[in-house]
Design a protein around this nucleic acid. Structure first.
Lengths: 190, 190
DNA sequence: TACTTAAGTGAATATAAATTCATTATATTT
DNA sequence: AAATATAATGAATTTATATTCACTTAAGTA
């Protein structure tokens, strides 16, 4: 029997991201996704039960990829400031490498399209970050505030800086990265 | 001749925000908006040429309202830290008063649905904020970084804190507001 | 090489939503 | 009070998109 072609899933994901960025949700039709991915409309339904499942699946895939990029080979035995700078740079670089991904995640993160279970599942890979924050608080490096404040602060700045760079209001280079991280660190540090 | 009913526009806006929050973009159909607003489908087209114009119009309306809430009766002759706290509190309170509005703005701000001209127009009312930032930088109160960094920082934290509160990860009270502002101020201050 | 099984196709179908329009209702004017 | 002009209606129409399915193609197997 003929096997499924793993490259097709990647092509479908990529096409979906592309269309989401350029045409927004309503422009992202199954027919266009198929065309962009270079396959027939019906083939989409071999790989994904329906549009909703495609979106949920892509969401989870991106979340996991993001977490992997963030934590792979992360060395925990360095001063916290350096560690957080590392996390900041990884996160920004990941967004820079493909704006489409963060645009997609941003748009769907709180939308009704993503099932609650998938949202929860997408959170799991990031739990280690929570632990790092907890420890840094214990050691009085970070402000003594509940972790959600820290987390919101990191996400808020990461998101907004990414968007500003995308819209050419801020540059992306060594120096600007330093500036951005300094602002973030001042917000977080004790 | 029979006049148009101004209250209908408000009802339409309100219905649109309601549906956007609960059903997302695709659930927000013209028929449902009409029903929720208590009018006939066709009546929508008397007030707005089409769905796109309705969304653009609501976007601009919310932007202007937000700017008004932010700056009305704002006293500029107080220490910058107090001034920024004032702006922070106004902005947060505005979001708290109606989550639907910030959800809508957040979702459509960078979407292809909002015409570029409308985006530009929606920016205008906020220009005074830029001036305040410029002055505070001159007086060495804020960090000596380009204004877009400051702006991004303010927006990023405001957005993310709002969302976290909505999802019950952060409380909204006097004390938490103080914590959030302290983080923002540390990020901005020189 | 023929056979089997699932992948792949894309036109046809079903479904859903935007928009129109013939008709009715109502506020204003003469 | 009749005339007029526009608001309001909602079923009918148009348009758009998701999904299906009868058929074709290709990979693996006997």
């Amino acid at each position: 029997m003929r096997p499924k072609d793993d490259k097709k899933i990647e092509a479908i994901y990529s096409a979906t991201l592309y269309l989401n960025e350029h045409l927004g949700f309503t422009g992202m039709t199954m027919a266009k996704i198929a065309k962009e991915a270079g396959i027939a409309t019906g083939t989409l339904y071999i790989y994904f039960k329906n549009k909703n499942e495609l979106i949920n699946s892509l969401y989870l895939y991106l979340k996991r990829q993001k977490a992997k990029n963030l934590m792979q080979d992360l060395s925990l035995d360095q001063p916290y400031k350096i560690l957080f700078k590392d996390l900041f740079m990884r996160s920004m670089k990941n967004s820079m490498a493909d704006f489409r991904e963060s645009a997609f995640l941003e748009q769907y993160f709180r939308s009704p399209f993503i099932d609650e279970g998938i949202k929860t599942e997408g959170m799991q890979p990031f739990l280690p970050i929570f632990e790092i924050i907890e420890e840094a608080k214990k050691e009085m490096i970070l402000k003594d505030v509940d972790t959600p404040y820290i987390f919101a602060c990191m996400n808020g700045l990461l998101n907004e800086f990414t968007k500003s760079i995308k819209e050419d209001q801020i540059q992306w280079n060594e120096k600007s990265a330093e500036t951005m991280f300094q602002m973030l660190w001042d917000a977080l540090k004790n």
